[in-house]
Design a protein around this nucleic acid. Structure first.
Length: 652
DNA sequence: ATTAGGG
DNA sequence: CCCTAAT
């Protein structure tokens, strides 16, 4: 820019260092906004297997958790290790996973949340069968695209120009996802396994419709399923202003407590966290709320559950906010109630209970499983969402879980004891009986993504996605890049935003367009950049705490480096915020800290021998410029300091 | 909110 | 990339 040149470029094209604070004040406001955008750049879906999918207005999973990275397996292992270490914490996650899969005889009362995951998990636990069933279940659920976006005939990439719209869209979508459950054929046969035979006839489960609308409010009407009918719900549901980019989760904790008050069909809650700025915060949850043991309630089933098809669902499930429902109790009390027909219409329809023989009949009514953390870009397609959820679920189901039995809160470890010996055979004990899903400690759970799970792979591959592959020629093992869309936010590109789109794959320096031949590497770069786009990770956070996800790794592409170098040459090394604004204003995921860090590594890279460098090679020319600029600005900085020192001395 | 550095 | 201290 002319003005800039006049004001201050130094000889080398370097700009004269601005006065310390002067240059930044004017942009303060805008910058803040940018940050928000960054945080929104990828939606983190926090899905408890409980059927709640949460949205996070920010990016965070670390590369180590990324499934789509180049070393998926390694990554998976990594997360697994953590998981094992955090075995304890996992149990504390109150993912209210209470859902009910009709076929499996699971029903929920307090939590009108029906999720694939539950079904899948239950199915797997119960059947101990292969993954196909589990997956099938999960897939079914997510698969129901028509339900996902009732309004539209086709499923389009979930994205929108406006962040708030995106958010809403996701909310709605997820809403649906959590609500619909399509019984996978494979599971049908498993039904009987669930219940313990009762005397003569075993309870039979009427064939349920294929699609069960589990307790849910139908927000098909309001495009923004987020808007709530007011009333008490307001407290738990996302407020309309969710548009605010940082819509935060909700979740488990909130939900847990809110559940009792939920009205018919409500199963999803969310809250916004206005003050949220720091990524970390968003994962914070009150410890107290997450300490609930993961256990599923079991129901002493006096009668066959049967027919409460849709009925069970909506009514039974949601309508009764049980007061008795408390956090710790996991609502077991309420569950029981319902079972006996006290509460829901479900139970009432059942045949009277009769304990004809020594068989104890149990019915699992709710199940809670560890949370799943999924990060997916807003530009991801429904198809990719499917896969991600599926993978995440599968990862958990794939062997990482075992079932624990609890009696009055205490774990029963002796597998050889009979129910009679344990006391479980007594009616009065049944309500104290609980089950829990626990991470397998002894052995490593299956990696999220590995050869052992052909299903996973197969899912990835065939899935036809409504998306535009970046470069057909580039075959990568990465899951897929879903963010191959246009710039989410058409930048009002002005000066020097070299890196525009969020998926830096296409940083568009003017010269980039037709330089493809020369820079064949660019093709390779693309997939890499977006590799992290789809990251699914079963969330095993560290101990007690809040799941602070590490951001996914996003290697700088050559063009990004170029832009960075250019900006630093001009602005210097101490003005990262300005660098960000100048060259990465549109790269939502690059923060000034990132840029600073990158510069640091670039300098280091430039100093070491080419053989020692790793990753995508950075053109030597660029590295040379890095060194030059670094030297120049270091010198400038030194000078400045001297000057300041002398100034202060004079004053003194 | 930014910067600067160590990890 | 993360985390912090210091601005």
């Amino acid at each position: 820019m002319v003005l800039q040149n006049r004001l201050g470029y130094g000889f080398n094209g370097y700009q004269v260092p601005p006065t310390p604070r002067a240059t930044r004040s004017p942009r303060r406001g805008s910058i803040r906004k940018k940050v928000d955008d960054n945080q929104m750049c990828a939606f983190d879906l926090l899905a408890t297997v409980a059927g709640k999918l949460l949205l996070e207005g920010q990016v965070s999973p670390s590369s180590s958790n990324t499934l789509t990275g180049k070393e998926p397996c390694a990554v998976a292992k990594d997360s697994i290790k953590k998981e094992q270490l955090d075995y304890d914490s996992a149990l504390k996650v109150p993912s209210n996973l209470v859902s009910r899969a009709p076929d499996l005889h699971f029903s929920t009362k307090e939590f009108p949340v029906a999720h694939i995951d539950d079904c899948s998990i239950l199915a797997s636990v119960i059947t101990s069968s292969d993954c196909s069933e589990k997956i099938g279940c999960a897939e079914k659920l997510v698969n129901d695209e028509s339900k996902i976006q009732p309004g539209s005939s086709k499923v389009e990439p979930l994205r929108a120009r406006n962040a708030s719209n995106v958010t809403k869209a996701y909310m709605c979508t997820l809403d649906k996802l959590a609500v619909r459950y399509r019984k996978p054929p494979a599971l049908i046969s498993q039904e009987n396994c669930v219940k313990v035979p009762l005397g003569t006839g075993h309870v039979s489960f009427p064939a349920y419709q294929d699609v069960v609308n589990i307790a849910v409010r139908d927000d098909d009407e309001n495009s923004s399923g987020c808007t709530q009918p007011s009333t008490t719900k307001t407290a738990f549901r996302p407020s309309p202003r969710i548009g605010d980019r940082r819509i935060r989760k909700i979740l488990a904790s909130k939900f847990w407590k809110a559940a009792p008050k939920l009205k018919d069909g409500e199963y999803f809650t969310a809250e916004t966290k206005p003050g949220y700025h720091n990524r970390k915060n968003c994962y914070k949850r009150k410890r107290s709320l997450r300490d609930y043991p993961l256990k599923k309630r079991i129901l002493y089933d006096g009668r066959s559950l049967s027919n409460s098809d849709g009925g069970i669902t909506s009514e039974g499930i949601s309508s009764s906010p049980r007061k008795g429902f408390s956090c710790d109790a996991s609502g077991s009390g309420a569950t029981l109630h319902g079972a006996f027909g006290t509460t829901s219409g479900v139970a009432s329809r059942h045949t009277p209970f009769q304990s004809r023989d020594s068989h104890v009949k149990l019915r699992i009514r709710s199940f809670k499983v560890p949370e799943l953390f999924i990060e997916i870009p807003e530009t991801a397609t429904v198809g990719s969402l499917k896969r991600n959820v599926m993978e995440a679920v599968n990862a958990i189901l794939g062997g990482g879980l075992r079932v624990g039995v609890l009696l009055q809160g205490k774990k029963i470890r002796d597998d050889n004891k009979t129910l009679l010996q344990t006391g479980l055979a007594h009616d009065n004990k049944l309500d104290a009986l609980g089950f829990s899903l626990e991470p397998t400690v002894s052995q490593a759970p299956p990696p999220l993504c590995n050869e052992d799970h052909p299903l996973l792979l197969s899912c990835n591959a065939p899935q036809p996605l409504t998306r535009y592959p970046p470069a057909p020629s580039v075959v990568h093992n990465i899951v897929e890049q879903s963010a191959a869309d246009a710039l989410p936010d058409p930048p009002l590109t002005s000066v020097g935003s070299f890196v525009e789109s969020d998926h830096d794959s296409a940083p568009s320096p003017p010269d980039m367009s037709d330089k493809s031949p020369m820079d064949s590497r660019a093709l390779v770069t693309i997939p890499e950049m977006d590799a992290e786009a789809l990251a699914v990770v079963p969330m095993r956070k560290s101990k007690r705490s809040e799941a602070v996800q590490r951001r996914i790794r996003r290697p700088f592409s050559v063009s990004e480096v170029e832009a960075l170098v250019h900006a630093v040459e001009k602005l210097g090394t101490g003005r990262w915020r300005d660098v960000k604004l100048l060259a990465f204003d549109n790269a939502k995921h690059r923060t000034y800290v990132d840029l600073k860090d990158k510069w640091k590594t670039l300098v280091h890279t430039a100093r070491i021998s080419p053989q020692q460098r790793r990753g995508e090679p950075v053109p030597q020319v660029l590295l040379d410029r890095v060194l030059d600029a670094h030297a120049y600005w270091s010198q400038q900085q030194a000078k400045q300091q001297l000057k300041q020192q002398s100034d202060t001395c004079l004053l003194l």
